[in-house]
């Protein structure tokens, strides 16, 4: 699905409610409802191509992105976007899933649930480590490059970055497989279902997050690095 600047903003959200996450991560929840995409962007002081790139990624559309349109301040919007989505994982999704798992443990006293919680916590510890790496290394590095000053020591490697993503996605997929195929919830299947739904939502946003980094952020970093270091 292509998006046109004159499409209605509300219809856009109705077609894919997950796009509300894009609006939220952009920090633009306070918007007028009856407007076009173009108006929304103007209201929110958001370049149209930035918004359209993001909603394409969240809609699973593989549209080629023209990196030449991306200026320094647009990348800063992207960094803030990614930074905000960290809050969604850490402050919203993790506590929700964790409390549902605890509820499961209180009701089903099996070793299996105990291990499942351990597995989830180990998985999320890895997610946190990755988010921490982004907050402490990647984002400051990008901000530095954008301010046109060289980083003293090159501590960032896009290959390493990519590897993190693969590990995280594999563990999450295992967690879903275990819950869907192997764990028996009995009368507490409604708790299992809620956990599975939250995991899907988490996976959806994390996947979009990786795609933004792989298809936008990393190529943009490389582009600016090239102009800085030659």
């Amino acid at each position: 699905m292509q998006f046109a600047p004159n499409d209605s903003f509300v219809e856009l959200i109705e077609r894919n409610p997950y796009l509300l996450l894009v609006v939220e991560h952009l920090g633009k929840m306070d918007f007028q409802k009856n407007v076009t995409i173009n108006d929304f962007c103007k209201q929110s002081k958001l370049p149209l191509h930035v918004f359209v790139s993001l909603i394409n990624i969240y809609s699973n559309n593989n549209i080629k992105i023209n990196l030449n349109e991306w200026k320094h301040n647009h990348v800063l919007i992207l960094i803030d976007f990614l930074d905000n989505s960290h809050n969604y994982y850490k402050k919203e999704k993790y506590p929700l899933i964790n409390s549902l798992l605890q509820e499961l443990k209180n009701n089903i006293k099996s070793n299996e649930t105990k291990l499942l919680i351990k597995f989830f916590n180990e998985y999320f510890a890895e997610v946190l480590e990755h988010l921490d790496y982004e907050e402490k290394i990647v984002f400051p590095y990008v901000r530095q490059i954008l301010s046109d000053s060289k980083w003293k020591e090159l501590r960032f490697s896009s290959d390493e970055y990519q590897e993190h993503h693969n590990n995280i996605e594999e563990k999450l997929s295992d967690l879903k497989t275990l819950l869907m195929h192997h764990v028996k919830f009995g009368q507490y299947s409604y708790i299992g279902r809620q956990i599975i739904f939250h995991l899907y939502e988490l996976e959806f946003d994390l996947h979009a997050h990786s795609k933004i980094e792989e298809n936008l952020l990393i190529p943009l970093i490389k582009k600016f690095e090239k102009s800085l270091y030659g």
Binding site: E112, L115, F119, K171, L178
Partner: peptide
């Protein structure tokens, strides 16, 4: 099993 990581396989082994 559809499970790739060791940690995931461990949970599976216990559940089985």
């Amino acid at each position: 099993t559809g499970i790739k990581t060791i940690a995931g396989l461990t949970v599976y082994a216990v559940s089985m």
